[in-house]
Simulated scan of single mutants.
Amino acid sequence: MPKPPPAPDDRDDLPDDASLFREAVGPVRGVRSAPRAPGAPPPRPRARMAELDEMEAVQSMRSISHPDPVAAGDVLSHRRESVPPAVFKRLKRGEIAAQDELDLHGANADQAERVLREFIVHAHREMLGCVRVVHGKGLHVAAPFGGPALPVVKNVVDRVLRQRGDVLAFHSTPAAQGGTGAVLVLLAPKRR
């Protein structure tokens, strides 16, 4: 038969639960803490000032490489010395067929530059000789602060194509192929 619980006045004489537990367990020794698992290494420090200097240098290079912006109706034209004048004349007339085309309508300046560079690399890797880049005429560009309205994507295309070593020549297309809203690009042959 179980023992009835003690009366409330007898409870003060009973040992507490913690002391009963220590009596039941007996002497104990402490456990060493386990070593921490190795975590991810801390990130490498970034040279922020060097990155800013690099960005500033790129921006100044862009402005130096083509200081005069191209207007909406201007013809884009560039030829390296290695391109014979007769070949350049055929390019200007649109007599060299474009093997691929890139349309940059709706792209902002950063998107246009990235996509154009990727397209030229792809065309060069595929050993295409001539491609067409449609950049638009820039007639719907709003003039900032009352200045002249300049076609942003057209200026990006002009700058990027002039800087690339794999571009031999380029010229705005004839009117039937897009006029001043597109450009035919003659690419250097891929070296083997």
Rank of each mutant, 00 (worst) to 15 (best):
E81K: 07
H66C: 07
A97M: 13
L104S: 00
A97S: 15
S77F: 03
V115Q: 15
F88Q: 10
V70G: 01
H78V: 10
I64W: 05
R80A: 00
I120H: 02
R79H: 01
A86M: 03
V83T: 00
I120S: 12
L102V: 01
A123T: 02
L102S: 00
M61Q: 14
R62Q: 07
S60F: 11
G73Q: 12
D103P: 09
S60P: 02
I64F: 04
D110Q: 11
R90S: 11
E95G: 05
I96R: 15
S82Y: 03
R93N: 10
R93V: 13
Q59E: 06
Q111N: 07
V83Q: 02
E81W: 05
A86V: 12
E113H: 09
V83R: 05
E118F: 01
D100W: 03
A97V: 15
G73V: 10
A71Q: 07
V115D: 10
F119Q: 02
V121S: 12
S63L: 06
S60H: 09
A112E: 09
H124R: 07
R117D: 12
S77D: 05
A72D: 11
L76H: 00
V87L: 09
I96S: 06
G94T: 05
S82G: 07
H66K: 15
I96D: 05
P84I: 02
P67R: 02
N108K: 01
F88I: 12
G94D: 05
F119R: 13
N108R: 03
D103S: 12
L76Q: 06
A109S: 04
S63K: 14
S65C: 07
H124T: 07
R125E: 15
K89N: 07
R125W: 03
V83M: 08
V121L: 08
M127G: 02
E101K: 11
K89V: 09
L104Q: 00
G106H: 01
M127F: 01
R90K: 13
E95N: 11
D110T: 11
S60K: 14
S60M: 11
R125D: 10
E126P: 09
E95V: 08
N108C: 00
S63F: 13
V83W: 01
D103A: 01
R114V: 12
K92W: 02
G106V: 10
F119W: 10
H105Y: 13
R114C: 08
R125Y: 04
E126T: 14
I96W: 01
A123S: 03
P84F: 04
D103T: 01
A107H: 13
S82F: 11
H124G: 14
